[in-house]
């Protein structure tokens, strides 16, 4: 279970997060929503070790995440996608996915230089895993193409495949539906449900597409001005006066 309590972050004197909290059950799909600038992406960046955290705690299955460097968070079983695509532009689709499988390998500098039979076996295995993943996410045709020339929707799929390659337990998706057409959103929804089902994944997503949020998630957490203002089922939060106020402004 993911438990975040009182997460606090400041940049200069500005508190970007103050008292953000969130819980997500194992194998659930949870959404984090809120108006623009509410601190959702900052929340993700803090969970994944990109920003230093000034207070509070975040645990995944009892493992403390606050204070870990980004690669430590990845080792703890978390994986993520980025709001504005963060692919490795000089690599092919398959190599992007293989790069995502970094944690599956063990070969270090010395072993890599010597390229022992064990290293080769390991490389073959990683490659096989990555090839299967590209198949599963529907990227087979573009597998050997450089990632930078692909359409936006395809690049988002590559990012999803890359995030799955490390065999995470908790997957964080930052606005997976942004920029997609509505058939693509429907496909995405099915894809998220499928991969969760097959892997027993826990999914946490930041999303503005309310249709997707309401149909995909059992729990929703709402943030505004860096703090959590409501938690509950989609129906509950929709009724919550604080949430209505956050989105529509206070009644005058």
């Amino acid at each position: 279970m993911l438990e975040v309590r009182d997460l606090t972050v400041q940049f200069g004197g500005v508190k970007a997060l103050s008292g953000a909290r969130l819980t997500a059950e194992r194998e659930s799909v949870t959404a984090l929503i809120g108006p623009n600038g509410a601190g959702k992406t900052t929340f993700f960046n803090c969970l994944t070790g990109l920003y230093p955290v000034h207070g509070g705690s975040a645990t995944w299955c009892g493992k403390q995440l606050v204070g870990l460097p980004a690669h430590g968070v990845a080792r703890a079983g978390l994986s993520r996608t980025f709001q504005n695509l963060a692919l490795f532009p000089s690599l092919t689709v398959l190599d992007n996915v293989i790069a995502g499988a970094h944690l599956l390998g063990r070969a270090g500098f010395a072993m890599g230089t010597l390229r022992t039979p064990r290293v080769r076996a390991e490389e073959r295995e990683t490659r096989r895993v990555a090839e299967e993943l590209t198949e599963e996410i529907g990227l087979r045709e573009v597998r050997d193409e450089p990632v930078s020339g692909l359409p936006y929707g395809t690049q988002k799929r590559v990012e999803l495949a890359r995030a799955l390659a490390s065999r995470p337990e908790l997957l964080l998706l930052d606005e997976p539906a942004a920029g997609l057409s509505s058939p693509e959103v429907a496909e995405l929804k099915q894809l998220i449900l499928d991969v969760r089902e097959r892997r027993g994944l826990t999914v946490l997503l930041v999303e503005h597409h309310m249709g997707l949020v309401m149909s995909l998630c059992r729990r929703v957490t709402v943030m505004n001005f860096g703090r959590t203002i409501a938690e509950g089922t989609p129906a509950e939060v929709q009724e919550d006066p604080a949430v209505v106020e956050a989105y529509l402004g206070a009644p005058t």
Binding site: F11, N45, A86
Partner: peptide, 8 residues
């Protein structure tokens, strides 16, 4: 100097 925060 001002601290530079990397934007992601």
């Amino acid at each position: 100097g001002k601290k530079e925060v990397a934007r992601v």
